[in-house]
Design a protein around this nucleic acid. Sequence first.
DNA 1: CTGGATCCACTCTGATACTG
DNA 2: CAGTATCAGAGTGGATCCAG
Lengths: 131, 131
Amino acid sequence: MSTYRRSCLIRGDGGRAIRGLLDRVGDKWTLLVVTTLDGERLRFTELQHRVPGISQRMLTRTLRHLERDGLITRTAYPEVPPRVEYALTPRGRTLIAPAVALAEWAVDNDPAITASQAAYDAAHPSAAATD
Amino acid sequence: MSTYRRSCLIRGDGGRAIRGLLDRVGDKWTLLVVTTLDGERLRFTELQHRVPGISQRMLTRTLRHLERDGLITRTAYPEVPPRVEYALTPRGRTLIAPAVALAEWAVDNDPAITASQAAYDAAHPSAAATD
DNA sequence: CTGGATCCACTCTGATACTG
DNA sequence: CAGTATCAGAGTGGATCCAG
């Protein structure tokens, strides 16, 4: 099974697949929240602590989107004070593997990419800071 | 080799890996351009035709970023009219596989996700259109 | 504790016009 | 052909306040 030109499958729809993908997981927090929920069942506040820098608003929005997409479950317990737990659905779990694969690519290639950027900036001093 | 909790590797850095990943390929056009260049060596205009909807400005920006990251090569021939060809570097080619894997996840799960959204919107009629 | 509502700053993108 | 420059609109994210 060759991987050569596999992307034709993806480009065949004029980019709709990739566009939808980015609409779903291309924002700032979604992948972070999903990977944080990997194998864990967490409450709102705990989630906020584990995703450094996320605001209440953004966490709420991200969780709502993920719930709407059927990737996580939201379980509210009728207690006081309220307790809400979030967990990945089976489908949400299937996202982990390809997402981590991409993230690992990013980790593996980060040094080389950073070096490339430095070399590029050195060769193009004008547009370095501008763009 | 279990894939369970593999994401701990990614979350260990406080999300820096994923953040960098999104900064690189999380924008609207990068993945589209990269997959379009899969196995091909294309000129600027040809690229613009194969990525429907992209503007000159966005194509230029995307190509510059990819070149800076060392994922594509830009070859300008000193002719008139000018001719410039873009192609993936070896490192750029390594991005194809994980990117396609994620895109395939999106394709495979799109029907179920769309259904989930419809069900969610039916159950939450108030916040459906608002957010 | 959870999270809705509002306001604001910033970025990203597209359209248009111009250049070598 | 292959860009660059400028402007305007939309979208995104953050801070804050308020409510169940």
